[in-house]
């Protein structure tokens, strides 16, 4: 991708983000009824999108060769477990990432 294409991508990302934040103020002036479908998606969509994002992050993992995806799966599982136990975002991210870095640098190489 060249510099101009990157600029286009960044501008699109800004526009998409801004839209999600501004749309309610544009289409629902105060007091206007909000459709049930919108409210329903608001409840169920986040969990599904976060699931999508986890898979998106792991999409380049090679399960057929090398370390067979073990460092990725193990580190993700540890991140999740630490988070369930301590419920501290920073500790969870740091422990999972450090484990992964140790695994790919010193163990599976």
């Amino acid at each position: 991708m060249n510099g101009e294409q990157q600029a286009v991508i960044i501008v699109l990302a800004v526009a998409a983000t801004l839209l999600t934040r501004a749309i309610p103020f544009i289409i629902f002036p105060e007091g206007k009824e909000r459709p049930q479908t919108v409210l329903y998606l608001g409840r169920v969509l986040p969990a599904a999108v976060f699931g999508f994002l986890v898979v998106f992050c792991l999409k380049d993992t090679d399960f057929t060769a090398g370390a067979y995806g073990v460092p990725e799966m193990l580190s993700a599982a540890v991140t999740a477990a630490v988070h369930v136990l301590l419920r501290n975002m920073m500790v969870s991210i740091a422990s999972g990432s450090l484990l992964y870095i140790v695994l790919v640098n010193f163990v599976t190489g």
Partner: peptide, 9 residues
Amino acid sequence: TALFVVIFM
């Protein structure tokens, strides 16, 4: 990845 695992959890 760790960030999104945490958000997911």
